[in-house]
């Protein structure tokens, strides 16, 4: 088994065993879509494409938030308790460690987002009587765009959590998440709705963010991490 897989599997296992984060994630995965479904159904009327576009926008924001939520356990916890120092001594490059952790965070975050998307689609369909869950563009959005953005969010936030001190992390954590939200809303302003073009642009933006995350993670040094352990 590759070290990437070893690291990712452990992070997934720990995320799925962290009761407090799971409860928070479930609350957001259920409460958030039910509330937003009411808004989507009221605002979009009976236009199936607009309904699917609304669900797509909500799930992307929620996916990014889930990535942020699960990062706290994978990156910050090990820094807070100092065990990251032991991991840095293992025969694994820092880049590989970051990749494994980001992947391990992204999987449970993606699963929660899928649960949320299913609840949202069911709620919207119930309220409007229009089945939206079978929209191929929405399925494409959930299968490609959402996981890429979650991975990018987990990677960027994780790299920042590795590089920054605990106090800086507390302050800047929300800056990162709101930065992502702002970017999503800004892109939706430029290319609204759900279309092949929209999905192409969002997928490209997600990949660019992933490349940026990888670039930033490559700049983080072990010394930087060790010196910011509390």
């Amino acid at each position: 088994m590759s070290t990437l897989s070893v690291i990712a599997r452990r992070e997934m296992g720990l995320a799925l065993r962290n009761r407090s984060i799971l409860i928070s994630a479930f609350i957001f995965a259920i409460w958030f879509p039910v509330m937003s479904a009411l808004g989507i159904a009221a605002g979009a009327g009976d236009d199936a494409t607009i309904l699917a576009g609304g669900i797509a926008a909500i799930t992307l924001s929620l996916g990014v938030f889930m990535g942020y939520l699960f990062c706290a356990d994978a990156f910050l916890r090990e820094k807070r308790d100092g065990s990251i120092e032991t991991l840095l001594c293992a025969p694994v490059s820092l880049q590989r460690l970051w990749e494994g952790k980001a992947a391990g965070v992204a999987v449970p975050a993606y699963l929660m987002t899928l649960v949320s998307a299913a609840v949202t689609a069911a709620a919207v369909s119930t309220l409007t009587g229009i089945p939206v869950a079978t929209d191929p563009l929405l399925l494409l959005h959930l299968a490609v765009v959402v996981p890429v953005w979650i991975l990018a969010a987990a990677g960027l936030i994780g790299a920042a959590q590795l590089a920054l001190g605990m106090r800086e992390n507390q302050i800047l954590g929300f800056v990162f998440i709101f930065g992502f939200f702002f970017l999503i809303f800004a892109l939706q302003g430029v290319v609204p709705g759900l279309s092949v073009t929209t999905e192409g642009i969002f997928a490209a933006a997600g990949l660019a963010l992933l490349a940026l995350a990888r670039f930033i993670a490559g700049k983080v040094t072990k010394e930087r991490i060790v010196r910011t352990i509390p």
């Binding site: 720990l14 065990s83 032991t86």
Partner: peptide, 9 residues
């Protein structure tokens, strides 16, 4: 290596 925190979860 063994640091003070043992490196355990």
């Amino acid at each position: 290596v063994l640091f003070e925190n043992n490196g355990l979860v």
